[in-house]
Amino acid sequence: MNQATTLFDRLGGETALNLAVDVFYRKVLSDDRISHFFDTVDMERQHVKQKAFLTMAFGGPNHYTGEDMRKGHAHMKLTEEHFSAVMQHLAATLQELGAQPEDIGSVASIALSVKDDVLNR
């Protein structure tokens, strides 16, 4: 593993991100615990949102603030179970794409860093 590169580059950059979005979105849409949050009329729009989330989790360019995260999720009344389901799918997606365990850990840390904002705590 080349430590000089960023997490986003090590995961495969834009190409891997585009693959990951489809894999991840399929997983959440198939999970009865959380699919209702993602199963909207405008699947393309939801897909774009998933890409924005994965870009952040992959350590890619983003300027999300804690306030953005709170505002975006406040109305959903999410619980620990919902958050943990998303974390599971995130890790499984990365495993499927052949990411290294250390990098999967780094992605999980980034995702966990927004947990309190997403759960509005």
């Binding site: 774009v48 949102k49 924005a52 870009t55 890619g60 360019p61 983003n62 999300y64 975006g72």
Partner: peptide, 28 residues
């Protein structure tokens, strides 16, 4: 606006003519 990084597409506007390619990356 949201991500301000060219991903979330929250800040779309319509031009009279084409904008630079980087501002249209990933759009349908």
């Amino acid at each position: 606006s949201s991500c301000r990084s060219g991903v979330c597409q929250s800040c779309l506007v319509q031009g009279a003519t084409a904008a630079p390619a980087a501002a249209q990356k990933g759009l349908k």
